[in-house]
Design a binder for these strands. Structure first.
Length: 213
DNA sequence: GACCAGGCACATC
DNA sequence: GATGTGCATGGT
């Protein structure tokens, strides 16, 4: 594949869907909360959970830390897996308070590589959540892979269906300029493509990449 | 009623 | 290292 073919695909998607304006959040910390809440969950349900939290108090580390567990669970209930996600968020907040002076500054001061390692070591944060945080909150050029990305690319025979997260990430990042704005928009466009045209069933119908070669 | 959603941890082989 | 399972609500 020529270096610019993937960029062509990007422009095709951008033209079709327009800018996605990701990530929708009022702060870096709110973005991180959303990243954990949206694990294997429709964003629509996450919006309800975020809304519920905002009714209780502005979404800050201190405010969430102060919320009783039962109250917290009830608020994020619409996002599903609420027991697990409560545990994950409370754990993350505890780590920020105990090891990072209760903020994101010292964490985000780390080099991209160290930052990624630290995030992956936190229980409840896997590769996609870690990379989402690095790209959309810390604003470093790391490409976020998700089920839509792999499904879209494999359906167009650009990647094998069973390729791993790291393989897909390396394949994409090797072909693109390491640019935060580009990675931001491109990932969001893959999600838009996947939602509308690349669902498990029925397969591609009217897909904007139908004639992509 | 089945299937899916902007995953991850953990058990078992 | 690969494969399977639990987690849970809400929309189509």
């Amino acid at each position: 594949m020529k270096p610019n073919r993937l960029l062509n695909l990007y422009h095709l998607l951008l033209e079709h869907f327009g800018p996605r304006h990701w990530w929708p959040a009022d702060s870096s910390f709110e973005m991180i909360v959303g990243a954990i809440l949206t694990q294997n969950t429709a964003w629509k349900n996450v919006e309800k959970a975020i809304h519920n939290l905002k009714q209780l108090a502005p979404i800050t580390i201190d405010n969430l830390a102060a919320l009783p567990e039962a109250t917290f669970k009830e608020a994020i209930r619409p996002a599903g897996y609420y027991n697990q996600k409560t545990k994950r968020l409370k754990n993350l907040i505890a780590i920020l308070n105990e090891e990072y002076q209760g903020g994101l500054e010292s964490l985000f001061d780390l080099s991209t590589e160290i930052l990624r390692q630290r995030l992956l070591n936190i229980s409840g944060i896997g590769p996609e959540t870690a990379d989402s945080i690095i790209l959309y909150a810390a604003k470093r050029p790391v490409f976020v892979i998700d089920a839509y990305t792999v499904r879209s690319l494999s359906r167009h025979e650009l990647l094998p269906e069973d390729c791993t997260y790291d393989q897909a990430q390396e394949w994409i990042m090797d072909q693109l300029p390491q640019d935060v704005a580009l990675f931001n928009e491109f990932h969001a466009l893959f999600v838009a493509l996947g939602k509308e045209y690349c669902r498990p069933q029925p397969k591609c119908d009217g897909c904007p990449l139908e004639h992509f070669t």
